[in-house]
Every structure is written in structure tokens, then in C-alpha cells.
Design a protein around this nucleic acid. Structure first.
Lengths: 187, 187
DNA sequence: GATAAAATTTTACAATTGTTAAAAAAGAAA
DNA sequence: TTTCTTTTTTAACAATTGTAAAATTTTATC
């Protein structure tokens, strides 16, 4: 569970605190296409991606919008379910067959309520995601579709390789036709 | 300090825990146009807006991008400074003369490191901002400029009234000319 | 109230992007 | 391989949006 532990420690936890959580993990392997999390349902688990790739999407005005990609060392969860205990808008599907570590919300929430170090770990998790999202949001303001794609090529070359282009276009907020045009032009 | 306390309690703090923080607040009044936080500097304070309105902006490719508005009951801070202890990209200016409560980062950080309830308060602060930003981000994917403006009218009518249109156009990621066209059309 | 400064709207034109539909290419299954 | 399905690209056209510059309106200052 190398990638999973790397992720946990990167958020500033001391190694000595790991044993409080690790025994609660369940290792699971799931095939490509599996829907891990579905919208409008209260989800009861978070998943650490040990190996594999996933995307989160929701439905808006009949369209499917991809708003997140995760791969090795990322955590996969429904914000609404974990943070607010209510059903969310998130659908999360595996794009490749994957190895995950599964953890009940209740395990995290118990630690948050009783252990100062884990409460601060949870704080740093949310803070780091917040900064990442804000930077992505700002980076995209006033960019042309071409610039957005070039940024994506630089920041996420691995995802570009592993994910189909329709999902990437959706993630970038552009039509697939526009993405194709840009790719033809860049070559 | 009604609005400030309302904000703190809304994140799930028990009233009995307030005295640990309140004495450390300093009340300040500042005029319109005051730059509270400047980019490329390590900021040492967070501010609770008791009364007034502010915007955060950064510079990107020579352009000024407004990416946040805050008013009564919002907290005003540099994510990079508070979360990562490093200079940020955020500039924050007051758009009206304002009444604020000023708090040193060190006060919050001490509480996070010693008090379970406050550590969880900090976690919830980041989590709630994260959900808000993600929803805003998703809401904007594939929307026309007109839809973005209509959403903004609904969700932030007070800010629309109090902030000049150039800043709102920037926040929505559209040019001011486009915003003017939309407003002419809607009437 | 008069004047200057700042913010907003309008105009004209060019560039980017979306939509629909069809063609081509790539991948999966028999 | 051959066939079927899915994904990606291309084409044609329409709609949206940006840019630059000028005109108008609003706000601030004397």
C-alpha cells in the first residue's frame, strides 16, 4: 500500500499515528467501468487509489460534466457525503481496473472527533484540495480552449495518455470538436 | 461582533469554546480602497468581515483576475499564507469602508495544535469553502456568459448591487463588453 | 452646479467556439 | 481476419464572444 501511505504521510501525519487507521483499510480490486460512487445517495466510504484511474462527473442540463480525475495517491470521495453527511452530486467511475483501499467514513470521523493529530490531518486534506482547486479555477479564467489544453498537457500528461478525449474536453469546459481541432493544429 | 460570531458558530463550534479566541481579536476600521493583503508577501493575519465588502484578485498575463468576493460573515485570508506558510498570489482590497476583526495566524495555529474542537473547526472551514468552490466551478462548465450572469444575479444579488461591473465580469470570466451586452438584452 | 475622472455602454469587425452530421480511425468481440 | 461498436476527426455553418475605440452615463471633487 505504498501509494496510499505516501499520500497520508504527505499531509503531515507522523508515522507513529498510522496504526490507528491502517487496520481499518480493506483492499479491493475492481474492474474498469465500475461505478464506485453514485449521485443522490449517501456514500459511506472513502477510497484511496493505490493503482488505477478514476473520474468524477455529474449531470447538468442533460449533459455529463467531468470535474475531477484521480489516479495513484489520490483520495476518492463524495464531498457532500463525507463533509456534510448528505447525498451528493458526484458520480465516480473507474476508467481502468484498479486497486483501492476502502475506508468507512465512520473510521475517519471517529478519529477526527477524538484525535488531535488526525483532526489536523483532515484539515490539511481539505486545505490542500482547496488550494489546488482555486489555482485551477484561476488558471482557467480568460484562457482560450487552446491554452487550457496546453496547460493540461503540461500538468497532467499521464491522464492525457490514459483517459479518452471526450472526458478531457468536458473537464476543460470545451466541446470535443474544439479539442480535436486544437490537437490537429498543434501537431 | 455579531456577524463574526455567527460565522464562527455556523461552522459547528460550541459557544463555550469562543472565549479561547475572542480576546485575541482586534477590531479595525479601514477605508474603501485599502489593500489588506498583497501578493508575493507572507501575510500574518486573517480578517473576519463584520461589515463591508472585499474582493480578491491576482495578475495573470498582465490581466487582473477577480476570483473571490466577500462580505459580512465571510473570512478574508491568503490561503497560501495560512495553510502553507508561504507568500501567495492573492491581493485583497476593500471595496467599501469596512469594519473587520483581525486575528494573527499564530492564534489560530496554536489552537489547531492544542485544541481538538478548534482543529475540527479549521477542518470544517476548509471543507465548506471547498464544497462551495467546487459547486461554483461545476455550475460554470459549459454555461454561456448569459447563464453565468443570471446565476450570479440569483446567488449574489447584494454583491451585484455593491460592486462595479468590471470586477463582476472578471469574476465570471467574461469581458466587460460582453457583460454590458447581456445586461442590455435582459432589460 | 461645473468640471474632471471613472465606469459603463455602444459600435464595428474579427476570431473563437459550438452544433450537427458524416467520415475515418481505433478498439473489442466473434 | 472480419464484423461490430466506440471513439476521434473533419466539414460546413451559425452563434457567441473578444478587441479596440468612441460615446455616454455616473460618480467624485472643487
Amino acid at each position: 500500500m505504498e501509494n496510499t501511505i505516501k499520500k497520508i504521510l504527505a499531509l503531515g501525519l507522523r508515522e507513529e499515528s498510522l496504526p490507528k487507521l491502517l487496520p481499518l483499510f480493506e483492499k479491493i480490486m475492481l474492474p474498469k467501468g465500475h461505478m464506485l460512487i453514485k449521485a443522490e445517495r449517501l456514500e459511506r466510504f472513502v477510497y484511496f487509489i493505490e493503482e488505477g484511474i478514476a473520474r468524477a462527473f455529474c449531470h447538468k442540463d442533460g449533459k455529463e460534466i467531468t470535474f475531477w480525475f484521480g489516479s495513484e495517491s489520490d483520495i476518492l470521495l463524495s464531498y457532500n457525503s463525507l463533509f456534510l453527511n448528505k447525498p451528493g452530486y458526484e458520480n465516480i467511475e473507474l476508467l481502468k481496473s484498479s486497486v483501492l483501499y476502502k475506508l468507512p467514513h465512520s473510521a475517519l470521523q471517529n478519529l477526527y472527533g477524538t484525535d488531535l493529530e488526525w483532526a489536523n490531518w483532515g484539515r490539511k486534506l481539505a486545505e490542500s484540495e482547496l488550494i489546488k482547486l482555486e489555482e485551477f479555477f484561476i488558471a482557467r479564467q480568460f484562457k482560450t480552449a487552446k491554452m487550457c489544453y496546453e496547460d493540461f498537457m503540461k500538468s497532467s500528461p499521464d491522464i492525457l495518455q490514459r483517459v479518452q478525449l471526450g472526458h478531457i474536453a468536458s473537464y476543460l469546459g470545451i466541446s470535443q470538436v474544439t479539442l480535436s481541432r486544437i490537437r490537429a493544429e498543434i501537431k
